[in-house]
Design a protein around this nucleic acid. Structure first.
Lengths: 208, 208
DNA sequence: GTCTATACGGTGATAGAC
DNA sequence: GTCTATCACCGTATAGAC
């Protein structure tokens, strides 16, 4: 081995810092519009030094996807072991929405800013696991719909992606992460209610 | 003049075709990932010939924004001459949603695929009039909210942008434009109801 | 209007010294 | 680990013949 414990530790720290920097720049400017030179400059290192930590620019992207790629899959695993019930629909959607912490929001922001970039990694291991995982998640939930009309399937997908919609709708500044997440939750519930009721009118609860 | 009527007519047709081709490629692959060579190839002309119709790649982008930039402004103009009333909120949002024809959807798809590209044109005349116009629209509507809390402002913005959310949520194929628009409308109404009621439960209609 | 040829810069990436 | 130097390539854009 050529790496001592000390250099190894410094290395992984720099690598982690590079990932965070890349994530920020990719989110602000887009993946294609961000050059390796720019990332290196912000890190205070030379452009070529980045290649010590990553094999290519695409490898940086890949590592960002890998970091957060398992979440959607875990959600899917959880869903498949739940007993089928009408309440599962709302429970599952809200489980996903509520799992979104303020830290996870930056991942959503990155994906929202680069909606097409996932296709760059298609075919490779761990490519677009987030997108694919959420898609499968929504598709599996669609089987629970009493009326799986195209519109209702669409509304279900919109409920699942309410966090993304909230991030897209949020102005660049002035609204805190908490309110973004809370708004996403309320929107998801409202859309789910629309699917159930076919309209805003809910039958009043009846006690026997 | 160096252009005869005949060449002039052919020219504007080619220009229009180039715009449509660019719009499609920008939507499929992204603005930065699409090269002028690619656009020229699909048109069956040389790369350099594009510069007869457009001064630069950015000029192509600009022309696409100009084509659909006035709609949000017209909406804003309409809003400002409406009498203030509680029903104006939902009426205004639905006016925007319902104005979305199947043809207009491709504009939304382009913007959804290139969320950051509007900033490329900021400062220039007619830059991001769509985004800015819709933002102003939502902000003006926010003044009509009984409770303009950050969450409610967020929800209002999400209702206005429900078309964008629907486009983002729609799978690449399998769902028609009509269902996408219809789902957006239902989602917008559901979110507006959530703002009004603060919850999915609506009081049942009471006849005196 | 369309072409060929070319200029120019920036990009991702590699080799090798230290 | 970080650097300098260098590479091939592709991007936009221009000049000028036809």
């Amino acid at each position: 081995m050529t790496t001592s414990p000390r250099t190894r530790r410094d290395g992984t720290e720099t690598r982690a810092l590079a990932r965070r920097t890349a994530l920020r720049l990719f989110t602000e400017q887009g993946y294609e519009a961000t050059s390796l030179r720019q990332i290196a400059d912000e890190l205070g290192i030379n452009k070529a030094s980045l290649y010590y930590y990553f094999d290519s620019k695409e490898a940086i992207l890949q590592s960002l996807f890998d970091e957060r790629g398992t979440e959607a899959e875990q959600l899917l695993t959880w869903l498949r072991e739940q007993p089928r019930a009408p309440e599962l629909l709302e429970a599952a959607v809200l489980r996903w929405v509520d799992s979104c912490t303020a830290e996870k929001l930056q991942g959503i922001r990155f994906m929202t800013a680069n909606p097409l970039v996932a296709r760059t990694l298609t075919g490779r291991p761990g490519g677009d696991r987030i997108v694919a995982g959420l898609t499968h998640f929504a598709d599996e939930l669609a089987a629970l719909l009493p009326d799986p009309s195209p519109q209702n399937v669409m509304l279900l997908r919109m409920a699942v992606l309410s966090i993304n919609a909230a991030v897209s709708a949020a102005p660049p500044t002035g609204i805190g992460d908490d309110d973004v997440i809370a708004a996403a939750r309320r929107a998801a519930r409202a859309v789910l209610a629309e699917i159930r009721g076919g309209g805003p009118i809910e039958p009043p609860p009846r006690s026997p």
